[in-house]
Amino acid sequence: MRLTRRANMTKVRAYFSLFRIKTAEGIQYRLAGLASASVGVFWALIEIVVFTVFYNYAANKDAGTLAGLTLKQVISYVWLSQAIWTMQPMSIDAEILKKINSGDVGLELCRPMDLYAHWFAGTAASRLIPVFWRGTVTLLCAILMPVPYRLGLPASAIGFCWSLLSFFCAFLLCTAFGTFVATVRLNVNWGDGPMYMMMLIGGVLSGGYLPLQLWPAALQTILLLQPFAGYLDIPIRLYLGTMQPNDAGSLILLQLIWIALFVAAGKALMAKRLKTIIVQGG
């Protein structure tokens, strides 16, 4: 019993090392990170201007507030969503995709590791790297902005704690979905198109383009239950206080359920593929 536990611990360490080495590799590229951050800041400013116009001059300018989101909250929403926007998987991890295409998946299989966990660790790193630079710089700008544009404080301390936990779950969810898409790509020779569509749908339904609360009222329940709300909408709602800390438990549970489903689906797809895998080339 103790032996197996120790064996598991060393395995976990291997995956963690993998995650660490890839992260170290990725965050070397400061300039790319800063470029992405400047896009984030620029984009956030545009969105803020557009929202300000709508909230002040639109025909039904109270619609947003009626939907439960004030202008001040929308501005905070925009900053937070821009900070973690690139955490969303918008492409399959470049290294994994290269390995699928070139047949180097085979080399990966020459390691005494579970390939799914291996990919999960790699995808996790590639989800974290873009946030590392873009996230910190965008948040820094958000705090230093003049008041009307500034990121607001969290609604409550307890809500803030829940939102931090939820942000972490969002990171796991993005990783789980990213890995899932990679396993689909491993199974099906559709090319990259359908994968990008899957991931784009995720981006739209995450609320990154338009906060989910501002979508039609009839869709609200579905929008909250669908997996991609967990990307950024749920943690941001907990931050803003548009979701109460009482509901935080069930919301995070919802995120966890989707994580579990994507992990299970990814593992199943990978196992199916590995049974009949044909390594390209050579």
């Binding site: 064996a7 060393t10 395995k11 360490r13 291997a14 963690f16 090392s17 993998l18 080495i21 890839k22 170290a24 590799e25 070397q28 080399l107 020459c110 390691r111 005494p112 590791m113």
Partner: peptide
């Protein structure tokens, strides 16, 4: 099977963990 952008030593350290 080495990590392209990292020092060789890092790849070796990772292999140490992978193979326990």
């Amino acid at each position: 099977q080495l990590w392209w952008d990292l020092p060789v030593q890092d790849s070796f350290d990772l292999l140490k963990d992978i193979y326990s």
